[in-house]
Design a protein around this nucleic acid. Structure first.
Lengths: 142, 142
DNA sequence: CTGGTTGCAAACGGTTTGCAAGGCA
DNA sequence: TGCCTTGCAAACCGTTTGCAACCAG
């Protein structure tokens, strides 16, 4: 059983409808190696001969965030991207190549959470989440 | 001599025109304590009885980035904000209160650059800059 | 059946662009 | 005077919304 089927089963248990569109969409996204936008989702579905309206793409992505299947990823341009929600123990960040646009994941040792206590102490600010992206040149582009 | 006058002098030396609008704009921005958008700039100028078109706001901000007076700040919504360009040695990050929208600065000890070697080694990715924001609740809102 | 899902078209909102009028050097 | 700057209106583009038709359960 692949990942998309696991998710579909989970959704059914939660009483969510599993439409043709949603099924195709979950297959695409569970195979995706990096975050993708609504438009990219539409394109990838089209490549499988499945045409969906962009509104549907946006609404499905929104739904799947609500259902904790996806996480939003915002990389500084004005496009919202999505990726499979990560378990709490596998938090990662993104490397964005400014030359070719490629997005890679990276897990950092120790991670950023060590800063959060310091921020609490100095600023009395309670950190709930953080966002860390690295911009630069990927292996191919340098 | 205050900060905005220093900048104005610098621009004049570079052969840039110093118009009324640009002068007012530099006063506002050098007094700003946190990043602001084109619209906020317009509002603050209006409070000083200076009306500028939003197009002018956008173009001036763009100019001042080109002239290395301002840096862009992107916080994940789709608004571009700006702040005075920081010297290389005073790199900082932002704390964004998700309740009231307040934006604070924070400087982190050691900083994130320590990760960049690790990224180079593991991913062959050359980091040129990074972006780190913390979302949560400010002192007042928790 | 019936309430969630989909497609279409139009609206939205921050930003950008084309063009004519205005103002700094 | 000549070129940069400004204002206005319209375009742009990713995203959202209203509404009628559709379909999974």
């Amino acid at each position: 059983m692949n990942h998309s089927e696991t998710i579909i089963r989970r959704l059914q248990i939660q009483g969510e409808r599993v439409t043709l569109v949603r099924r195709a969409l979950l297959e695409i996204l569970s195979a995706a190696s990096s975050p993708f936008s609504a438009e990219e989702l539409q394109t990838r579905l089209a490549a499988r001969r499945i045409k969906i309206n962009k509104t549907t793409a946006y609404r499905q992505l929104e739904n799947l965030v609500r259902l904790a299947v996806l996480d939003e990823v915002r990389l500084g341009d004005r496009v919202v991207r999505y990726e499979l929600a990560s378990a709490e123990d596998s938090h990662h960040h993104h490397l964005i190549c400014t030359a070719c646009g490629k997005i890679e994941d990276v897990e950092l040792p120790g991670d950023v959470s060590r800063y959060e206590k310091e921020i609490k102490r100095r600023k009395k600010f309670t950190v709930l989440r953080h966002s860390l992206e690295f911009f630069g040149l990927c292996k191919k582009c340098q």
